[in-house]
């Protein structure tokens, strides 16, 4: 277990370095955006002097490296500065939005991950059967359709025509959990449909890949029933690739859902980012990007640790 701990610490260190490099990229990319907040706020009629004064007031006249260090030193303690538009603290703006996004992602993940893996195991067991093909076609269709399209289809059939679920996922603080779950069901379902295919197909492929192994043949020759061969003998050795794909999809659930949030008017971090970009609200943009990057790195780290923990050679060294 000591080895595992060392590996985890190493990965964590690498993750921090990656995050640092990303912070430079984010800052650089934002610098490259045409125009700045001073011009945006003051509009076209502003004089040179006004713009300069505004820049000085916001600290934009200082050289980029100084501003970067300033920003970074704040960011490491969770202080991303103030929004240039509203003037409120960026962390306070982002926190509730990010919590909403995490909630929706968790909601979708709780449905999608077990469902995808169970379906993956079933299609591996019934490989090349009609069920396998139908499941493949359906999940591929859902992954190939744009998210907003899926969203609108669901709204049409499950909301407009039948009225089972609300089409707009606006939240207020006095709702009970059940209400929230009901209200956010359609966006969650849309995301389930988007991420399921990938995880299911990887589960199927990872299991089928192992079926030619001598130990699978041995299990069969011991008289083990087919379902048990898959679940007990193949699946435990297939976790590593499955976990990695699950982690990638979880990251996508958090960082790739802007369109779904827009379609269902859900107050998540994706919408916040899009708004901030159009308003040239750089501190918010930078903070959002950094949060996304950290999410990606953490989930990949979790996947690495997961793969290690499912490998008996690493868990039980000689």
């Amino acid at each position: 277990m000591k080895d595992v701990l060392i590996i985890v610490l190493k990965r964590l260190g690498l993750g921090l370095i990656t995050l640092f490099v990303i912070s430079i990229l984010i800052f650089g990319a934002v610098e490259l955006l045409p125009g700045d907040i001073a011009e945006a706020v003051l509009g076209q009629g502003a004089t040179e002097e006004n713009v300069a004064a505004m820049r000085k007031q916001l600290g934009l006249d200082r050289p980029a490296p100084v501003r970067y260090l300033d920003w970074l030193s704040g960011a490491v303690v969770g202080d991303f500065g103030n929004s240039l538009v509203s003037g409120s603290n960026v962390s306070e703006v982002i926190a509730p939005r990010f919590a909403n996004t995490l909630f929706l992602a968790a909601y979708a993940a709780v449905i999608a991950v077990p469902l995808a893996i169970i379906l993956g195991v079933i299609v591996a067991l019934l490989r090349n059967s009609v069920f396998d093909r139908v499941a493949n076609v359906l999940t591929l269709t859902s992954i190939s359709s744009p998210e907003f399209f899926l969203g609108y289809i669901l709204i049409l059939y499950l909301s407009v025509k039948t009225g089972y679920f609300p089409a707009i996922a606006k939240l207020s603080s006095d709702m009970s959990l059940l209400e929230v779950l009901h209200r956010t069901f359609l966006p969650a379902l849309t995301m389930v449909l988007v991420v399921m295919a990938h995880m299911m197909r990887m589960t199927r492929a990872a299991i089928i890949n192992l079926l030619a192994s001598p130990y699978i043949e041995m299990a069969r020759l011991k008289g083990t029933p087919a379902w048990k061969v898959i679940v007990k003998h193949a699946l435990p050795n297939a976790w590593a690739p499955i976990i990695n794909v699950v982690a990638l999809n979880l990251a996508y659930l958090i960082t790739g859902v802007v369109l779904v949030e827009v379609v269902f008017v859900y107050p998540g971090i994706g919408q916040l980012l899009v708004d901030a970009v159009t308003k040239r609200d750089f501190p918010v943009v930078q903070a959002c990007c950094l949060v996304f990057a950290a999410t990606f790195i953490l989930l990949n780290l979790a996947a690495d640790v997961g793969s290690i923990l499912t490998n008996p050679r690493l868990r039980h060294p000689k």
Binding site: S213, P214, Y215, M218, A219, N237
Partner: peptide, 8 residues
């Protein structure tokens, strides 16, 4: 070595 399941 190949015919024992490495996971059990």
């Amino acid at each position: 070595a190949a015919s024992f399941n490495p996971a059990h």
